[in-house]
Design a protein around this nucleic acid. Structure first.
Lengths: 212, 212
DNA sequence: CTAAACATGGGTGTTTACCCCCATCGAATC
DNA sequence: GATTCGATGGGGGTAAACACCCATGTTTAG
């Protein structure tokens, strides 16, 4: 029987996870934690086979929890469960010593599979994570697929003004360039970022956290 | 036996919720949905007693789902389940016609209680929501200027499609209306929300948390 | 029942967005 | 020194967005 620790600050979610894991009949949940500090304490005390850890938690986030467990209790395998698919998270978690990474969009069956895989001493990364890791190996140092980074200085200025809702004419006036130049920049930005129109451009900015 | 619909885009969470609800032995889950559109469809088709709805969902967010169910299937009681505690969410949801509001920090037992309360025809709002509502009653001045709420059902559909980056023509095709009608809706939306163009519209959606 | 709101679609413009070419000039790179 | 890249500007065109009108039915609310 696989002994599991579940750490998630949302009580409804955590207790549901516990119920689902138990219902699978393949494991037992020996501990729960609602924040990072409690998760580490429980793990060090009870030494579960697998620690299912959410990233966003009060007091101590999931990344820190994984890092500490990797050092202080290496036999406890960490399975990160999160809703974030951003590459930065993936790399951080793997670097911190996580043995598995699963997004919350994955089906429950995959969680069970991941838990069993980790308990068997293997690592489990879904197809998405594997792809990110592969890209990282192929092009070390640079983040994969970062069209924004391909924008020139000037193009980034224009980019932010467009996202702010300014028209081409207003942008041209503000930057003291011709309307045509601003328009050219605009087209080039759309092309480089692979979006079709202004709406998709703004959504791109939101997705990449380029606002505020 | 209480018949329940569970709508949450995170599959792990959704399936766990289902497992936990079933484990309680007091209800049966007759349907699941991974996005807002599917949630409305399922609810209209199967008419559950209670619809447990997450706020952040693709295609159609929880607020919209509640609003539509309140109109098209008033006998289906909506229980909003979210991690957001912001006042604006609470007011929006209640105004949209939700019969219950629960944060994910609440214990599972409270979810069961809430479900049973709603199934019995009562409303269930936790202490936090009640407090917010009380404050609202105490200062009934300008409730909350909500230009989005001034949009009609159809206009909201168009709104979300525009924010998703679709052109007028694509929207018309999807909704099976003429390009001109879609264009008219579009203009009216810009006017009602007080924005000048698509970029500002998307930013509005971001600011009001109307995405996902 | 009447008035208002809504969804639909059309007309007629102007403005803006977007695309594909092109050229020049300077700076950096090789 | 030659080449690439960035920023600048333009021509010419299509498509889309946007702003005003307007008219019908239908539904809804007072």
């Amino acid at each position: 029987m696989i002994r599991i620790l579940v750490a998630d600050d949302h009580t409804v979610v955590r207790e549901s996870l516990v119920a689902a894991l138990i219902a699978s009949g393949e494991c037992q949940v020996i501990a729960e934690a609602a924040d990072g500090v409690a998760a580490v304490e429980q793990a060090l005390l009870l030494r579960p086979n697998v620690a299912v850890v959410d990233i966003s938690m009060p007091k101590l986030n999931g990344i820190e929890v994984v890092r500490r467990l990797a050092v202080e209790a290496p036999e406890v395998r960490s399975l990160v469960l999160t809703m974030h698919e951003e590459e930065e998270y993936v790399l951080h978690m793997v670097h911190a010593g996580a043995s598995g990474y699963l997004v919350k969009h994955a089906p429950m069956a995959e969680l069970i599979t991941a838990v069993k895989t980790l308990a068997a001493g293997e690592v489990y990364f879904g197809p998405y994570v594997s792809r990110v890791l592969a890209m990282q190996v192929q092009r070390p140092g640079r983040s994969f697929d970062d069209p924004y980074g391909a924008l020139s200085i000037r193009e980034r200025e224009v980019f932010h003004l467009v996202v702010d809702g300014m028209t081409t004419k207003e942008i041209a006036r503000k930057l003291e360039i011709s309307t045509k130049t601003a328009e050219n920049h605009r087209s080039r930005i759309l092309e480089k970022l692979g979006v079709r129109n202004t709406a998709e451009l703004v959504r791109y900015a939101v997705r990449k956290h380029l606002l505020d």
